[in-house]
Amino acid sequence: MDKVMSNKGVIALYVLPSLLLLLSIVYIPIVLTGYYGLNKWDGISPMSFIGFDNYKTLVQDQAFWQSAYHSLLLAVFSAISLIGYLAIALVLSGKIKGANLLRKIYLIPMLLSSVAIAQLWIKIYHPSNGVLNTFLNSIGISDPPSWLADPKVVLFSLFVPIVWQYAGFYILIYYAGLKNIPETLTEAARIDGANSWQIAMRIKLPLVTEIIKVTVVLSVVGSLKYFDLIYVMTDGGPNGASEVMASYMYHKAFRSFDFGYGSAIGFFLLLICLLATYLIRKATATKDTVQFH
């Protein structure tokens, strides 16, 4: 077996299928998107090469930068919500009653499609007979906002179901990391007189730091390119108040039939995600990594 695996030809043969798959569904589309962004194209007629004109238009497009601001707000909101997810995981990883049931409850949103979640929250936010406004009316608030129609609140109304949608995913990641910490470490800390708060802050959190870094990257980058639930619930409305970069790209490409400009937005969004990943990794880089065996 060692002789076979030391053969470079055999190694290349094993790697080739996955490499071809990666090229066909990731790298080639990225290159094509960058090329389309250099053209004026409606998706049907022949492309007309215009150089960097689409990118110059993008820099001056106030509607795009407004959508970028909304995506940034979502990224910040999602990153902050990780604190809540981590707190829940810390509680669930302890010896509490009903932890198994609570874990299953938190995982329910992961079992639903984005369309199903969107339809559920549209019903909750319904201005006349939705659960939320019905409750607010019952406690004396006679004029609650139209959550998905008011430009002042629509964006934050969308943040709530998005955070709820991914709660189970991040809680599961944190829970798995916390449960992987040896019990001997926490037991030794308790014998030395440490309370639950001290154990969480000084033992558990340092040991899951690398996991936290990964989830921050996933959360921020995922938020910057988020699309599906916003598209179903508001389609970027009202009047662009909930437009994000991905939905703006979709509207330009598939509604305005400006595939060249839409491709430029998509390629620029890729660069923003790469830059965000680099900055987060740079900001959270440490010389020493806490390890346990």
Score class of each variant (00 low, 15 high):
111 L>Y: 08
97 K>W: 08
74 L>F: 11
71 S>K: 09
82 L>H: 06
69 Y>R: 14
106 Y>A: 02
70 H>Q: 09
81 S>A: 13
105 I>D: 00
101 L>D: 03
97 K>T: 08
76 V>H: 06
89 A>D: 00
77 F>L: 12
68 A>I: 10
69 Y>W: 14
97 K>M: 07
93 S>E: 04
100 N>E: 09
82 L>E: 07
86 L>G: 05
88 I>L: 14
87 A>F: 13
96 I>K: 00
90 L>S: 02
78 S>K: 14
68 A>T: 11
92 L>Q: 03
87 A>N: 09
91 V>C: 04
80 I>K: 11
99 A>L: 04
88 I>V: 15
72 L>T: 15
70 H>D: 04
82 L>Q: 12
77 F>Y: 15
67 S>F: 14
78 S>E: 11
73 L>G: 06
102 L>P: 01
78 S>Y: 11
98 G>E: 01
72 L>G: 15
103 R>W: 01
105 I>K: 02
111 L>P: 01
81 S>Q: 09
80 I>W: 13
76 V>Y: 07
91 V>S: 02
99 A>S: 14
67 S>L: 13
70 H>N: 15
107 L>T: 06
84 G>P: 02
97 K>R: 10
76 V>M: 10
98 G>R: 02
73 L>S: 07
108 I>F: 15
76 V>C: 09
98 G>M: 02
83 I>D: 01
82 L>K: 05
86 L>Q: 08
86 L>C: 11
79 A>I: 12
74 L>M: 13
106 Y>T: 03
106 Y>F: 14
69 Y>L: 13
101 L>E: 06
82 L>F: 07
106 Y>G: 00
105 I>A: 08
79 A>E: 07
100 N>A: 12
95 K>Q: 06
89 A>K: 02
84 G>L: 05
108 I>A: 10
104 K>V: 13
72 L>V: 15
75 A>R: 11
86 L>N: 08
70 H>S: 05
81 S>P: 05
109 P>G: 09
69 Y>D: 11
70 H>V: 05
102 L>R: 01
99 A>N: 07
95 K>F: 00
76 V>K: 06
84 G>T: 04
73 L>Q: 11
